[in-house]
Design a protein around this nucleic acid. Structure first.
Lengths: 239, 239
DNA sequence: GAGTGGTCTAGACCACAGG
DNA sequence: CTGTGGTCTAGACCACTCT
């Protein structure tokens, strides 16, 4: 354990974080019990507890009384849902389908290279994807990935990409997405984008740029999603 | 103390919350020390601590080692700043000036009545306000307030409203704002709005609807702010 | 019933702010 | 120096889950 003069619970936290990043503790599985961990680390329960609490706070773990503490998988559908409220007649969430339309290799421009932490001109995998509900396109997505990590995607038939990409990355490329940061902005629809989204050119669209990262915070995917701004709604609490 | 079968630390939390709402503990001042509070409540420090932690978490208190624990004032400029990055050449935040242009009494429509928890047609104070940086209008604001609580505002010369409204509410009407919820959406500028914001009609605008509440969660103010969507940017972290 | 996390206590020692 | 919150411990008892 890195013995800086940090509080013990923070050093515990860092160590547990490293275990997740290293894959020792896999998403969806339970971590060892409090008794085991306190014994292993040689600390009191309260201290361990505090470390775990910060990880729960950050959304990396989930505790469940009587069952255990689990590594959480980030919920990206929830993200979409924070901004666009697509519900069916029963008020249940509707997750749009995803279909890859374009897939090729290209060289990274400035923006993409910056986002992925690569040199400009580095080889990247490019995907274009539409996300639909009831056959209607809700989002148009452009996706860039480092070819060195995601080369397997170049040999797969675009039609064979699953509905969800992140489990696919995990299976095909062994790349785990642990977190992401998204930046929203507003633009107006070009003719091409308007056609795709069935809106009028010049109408406002929401552009969501996402940098998805591994559990060790390495940027793995850069994604730009564009959708009609009409159904966009976002709620914030201020204190 | 309400002796439900809630955990002790939650009951402590509720009691402290009530003290803030009642004005026993004023924003900006320190609450009693841990020693006093544990004695008063008859609980262990750890338990009191946990209660305070949840309040810190919710942004209602701030702890400072060696100094004490303080009731926090909500920072609404920070809110604006989360969405629009107005900085000067040194990279410092620029808070727009505020000027009340219109002030009268009217009867609440559906939307306003709902937001403020009033009956439709109830009397409300209506304000129209522009917020500017370097003489340029950044936001146009419409504000509605329950006349029963904010009647003093009707007798003030609109020019005498201060740059900031919440301290003014506090001084003139004894109404303390403790929190708020904001909902963002996108619209297109009408001719009138475009003129006010110096943009072209039909260009996208961000509409921020805010319901500001007292420390006891009573809705006190309903505000609709409209600004150019061009400089809008919002960042979210997903886990 | 056995095992898990959830609540609560009592007290020690440390680090920082301010007179 | 005194008083504040920050860290850490050790252990008791409760509530829940699963078999």
């Amino acid at each position: 354990m890195t013995d800086m003069r940090l509080p013990l619970y923070q050093r515990l936290r860092d160590d547990m974080l490293a275990r997740i990043a290293a894959g020792d503790w896999a998403p969806g599985t339970a971590i060892p019990t409090e008794a085991e961990l306190t014994k292993y680390y040689g600390v009191a329960v309260g201290t361990l507890r505090r470390a775990v609490e910060t990880l729960v706070q950050d959304g990396l773990m989930e505790r469940s009384q009587g069952r255990g503490t689990f590594i959480r998988r980030p919920n990206f559908d929830g993200s979409l849902f924070r901004f666009f409220r697509h519900v069916d007649s029963q008020g249940e969430r509707r997750v749009p389908t995803g279909r890859v339309m374009v897939r090729h290799e290209e060289s990274a421009g400035r923006r993409v290279a910056d986002a992925l932490g690569l040199e400009e001109g580095a080889s990247v995998v490019y995907l274009e994807r539409v996300r639909q509900i009831d056959g209607q396109t809700i989002f148009h997505e452009q996706i860039w990935l480092d070819t060195r990590r995601f080369a397997p995607l170049l040999t797969v038939d675009p039609a064979d990409f699953g509905n969800l990409l992140y489990p696919f990355y995990e299976q095909q490329c062994g790349q785990l997405i642990g977190a992401a940061e998204e930046t929203l902005s507003v633009a107006t629809a070009s003719q091409a984008m308007a056609d795709r989204l069935s809106i009028d050119p010049g109408q406002p669209v929401i552009v969501i740029e996402r940098i998805a990262k591994g559990y060790d915070a390495t940027p793995l995917e850069f994604r730009r999603s564009t959708g009609d701004a009409g159904p966009f709604r976002y709620r914030v609490d201020i204190t």
